[in-house]
Amino acid sequence: MLTRLSPYAFVFPTAAFLACFVAYPLVWSLYLSVTDYNLIWSNTTRFVGIGNYTRAIQDPLFRRALFNTLLFAAFHVPITVGLSLLIASLVQAAGRFGRVCQTLLFIPVLVPEAMGAVIFIWILSERFGLLNNVVTMVLGEPFFINWLGQPGWSMAAIILTSYWGIGVSIVLFVAGLGNIPKSLYEAASIDGAGPIARFWHITLPGVRHTTTVVFILSLIGSLKVFALPKVMTNGGPGVSTTSLYQWVFSNAFEYFNMGYACAMAFLLGALIIAASAPRLIASRREDV
């Protein structure tokens, strides 16, 4: 009896935690997503079926936010993967100096994203921003671009700022590169393989798992992008930088349309799963 109960006793705290803070909110929000619940104004909650889901699909703002989010991901994910692999390779090749660089590149990760966004507001500010004033000094004539107030530039500014947190991917790649046996490179060199061939045939397959992890982490991160557009542009000018998560947040915690916000959150969750599943499945097939 005791032997049978003991495992349950050990599992219970975790199970209780997951039940309280994962399963229950998930089920409750799924229920809310099929109602018209408004936190402030609803005295009664009306069942609306899939009404919130169809409303989201027809909502031009949802569609625009989805487009902005995908645009952000389209630039953020491949550049994060490629750039962090490149920097990690350089860091590893540079020996001790490389490790110093790795530490320096990791430091921005310790700064909260919202705080980083505020710093970049100051850097990119039109009149007193560091960037415009440095360019003014270099050119010797006034140079004032409203980086965050013009539709094209504002999205570019947010994408560039997002590489602030690339240090995590670099650290992962450095660890992945460290696991590739040096003997493989030595054998390839003896066989006459050049740097590009060695990178293509040894390094890339060697960091396959790390690439998958970095890809999925940056994909999820970019589809959930929130703090940067919220703090830097508040989604503007107009809706040119409004992200999907921001639109969910506004509906949930500013407009209190909890039912609609929950439906959009589930659609966003489905999108993240759908976007990351192919890479996961492909990675597993490669292992087999």
Binding site: I121, E126, F128, N146, G149, P237
Partner: peptide
């Protein structure tokens, strides 16, 4: 006139205090 305040609510007061507007 500047539209910089579209993204930063504090821009007008900062610019006024800095003598830039």
């Amino acid at each position: 006139t500047t539209l910089a305040a579209m993204s930063d609510v504090n821009q007008p007061r900062s610019d006024l205090k800095a003598g830039l507007v």
